[in-house]
């Protein structure tokens, strides 16, 4: 996570761009294919604020605050539109 001003907002959760080699390891235990993931637009400000450059079909890991569980991890697939 860099010091982009975006991350200072408490409503913006932590985004981590997964390496291609990591994706299978994260998704297979969950029994989810990449096509079944929720999407995130390539032009999403959170992706632009990342250090790495995201491209279509990448997967981001989102660490959200959760009212019920404390924290929660979601995965989103990058799409152009």
């Amino acid at each position: 996570m860099n010091d982009n001003i975006l991350w200072l907002n408490k409503l913006v959760p932590k985004h981590v761009l997964l390496k291609e080699s990591e994706i299978d390891g994260k998704l297979t235990p969950l029994n989810i294919t990449r096509e079944q993931l929720p999407k995130i637009l390539l032009k999403d400000p959170a992706l632009k604020a990342l250090d790495e450059e995201a491209k279509q079909n990448d997967v981001v890991e989102v660490h959200r605050f959760s009212e019920s569980a404390g924290s929660n991890i979601a995965y989103r697939r990058v799409v152009e539109e």
């Binding site: 989810i32 079944q36 929720p38 959760s66 009212e67 019920s68 569980a69 929660n72």
Partner: peptide, 11 residues
């Protein structure tokens, strides 16, 4: 069959 929430109610 696309995922809406990864864990029901997150907990």
């Amino acid at each position: 069959n696309t995922v809406v929430q990864f864990q029901y109610g997150e907990d």
